[in-house]
Design a protein around this nucleic acid. Structure first.
Lengths: 227, 227
DNA sequence: CCAAAAGTGTTGTGGTTACACCCATGA
DNA sequence: TCATGGGTGTAACCACAACACTTTTGG
């Protein structure tokens, strides 16, 4: 094949985690020459014989050590020819969610170069990474209405109020507690456990668990949440 | 930047058109060495300083002369390292729709190398193009439930029965004529014209037109069609 | 007057919304 | 006993599904 191109291909990951009743994104502090010490999404160049998804997972592991519960392709950014000042780079962006119980609280010490940032307190980002992050946020909110995404963000066992709070945070509007409970329960993919969690004050609350089997059944038929 | 990659980047387009009460895809007959004379999606390599969308449009123009009414990024195929036998190629696939009234009936003569194929009579395709086409079909059907896609496929003025027929074809199930009409009309983005179309037999039918303004309004709020 | 396609309403049902009070606990 | 958050039911309303006959034209 006689063709010669001078375009590089990279992958970037927008990984969301939910902690302290807030949505967070995983960012890394760059060390190379360009955008030195600025915050950016996790990502890097794809190896010649490496599938794209392998590349994202490798970068995530190398740069932050996190392991994902959910990963999907988001969008390929290649309409802006100079999005990387060094050379033309096309980036395949991925969108990931991590279960709160698996979150390793990296970067709360300043020694690390990876950190969970609350989405409402983001720093300026390198390259066009803000744009990428924004499309990921749009996707997240859209998914919320047709997939019970909460379950990939919450720990394996959680309070109903935590699920509700997550929806409130992500949708940015209030929810009627009774109606929400009725709706979620009607899907049948939530199980009550017999465990309770004692909070500092107030009545102890039941812990719930997600039933994957029931969920996969429904998923194939297509669910629709309005809220 | 010291990095060197040996990966090529291409774009491919899955373009749908609706004619003779059937969904069609635009295919081209390959002429190069690999997959010579086999049918494939329209596509080709991206130029070094060319935005991705420009590349797809250029290829479409060069190979078939069609001009699209709707184009969106579909998916980037790069998990299979040997999808192109010659070299590693990552392909950014696009999904397009064309208005019936703009369809140039290429390829009904055998001299041409581009042709509209009905989706239920597809030939074998080169590379992993069947897979790409299938994801485009999935996307098309999914979009149908939250966007009035019919309007990008039908001519500017059309019969209600044509719109209905389009949904029947794409969804593969029957629709109640009265309920369908009520639902579509309730959105308010369809306008009656005062024109009539006389068919060979039967009562003449009103022609309808799509009101873009009203549609864009609704689109931002999010529409939902069940059907 | 027959064939062909267009056009048109009503009713039952099930889901969604709106809404407010009691319960269990720790301090 | 008070503060805090957890848990629950009902009634009005609206959207959807099911269903069949009449109208207009050409042959």
């Amino acid at each position: 094949m006689p063709i010669r191109q001078n375009i590089l291909i990279a992958v970037d990951a927008v990984v969301f985690g939910y902690m302290n009743a807030n949505l967070h994104v995983l960012l890394v502090k760059r060390k190379g020459s360009t955008f030195h010490k600025e915050w950016a999404l996790v990502g890097g160049f794809v190896l010649d014989d490496e599938p794209l998804t392998t590349a994202v997972k490798r970068e995530l592991k190398e740069e932050t050590g996190v392991q994902l519960d959910y990963l999907e392709q988001l969008f390929t950014f290649g309409d802006t020819v100079d999005r990387d000042p060094r050379s033309r780079v096309i980036s395949v962006a991925y969108f990931g969610l991590i279960n709160s119980s698996k979150i390793v609280p990296i970067g709360d010490t300043d020694a690390m170069d990876a950190k969970w940032y609350p989405v409402n307190e983001l720093p300026d980002l390198a390259f066009d990474h803000s744009e990428i992050l924004n499309s990921a946020l749009d996707r997240l909110r859209a998914k919320l209405t047709y997939q019970p995404i909460g379950f990939d963000l919450l720990p394996n066992e959680f309070l109903f109020s935590e699920l509700e709070q997550l929806y409130v945070t992500l949708l940015g509007k209030d929810i009627d507690r009774r109606n929400f409970r009725k709706k979620i329960m009607s899907f049948g993919f939530l199980e009550e456990t017999s465990l309770f969690k004692q909070k500092k004050s107030g009545r102890p609350a039941k812990l719930f668990r997600f039933n994957d089997l029931k969920y996969r059944e429904l998923e194939s038929k297509g669910i629709y949440f309005d809220l």
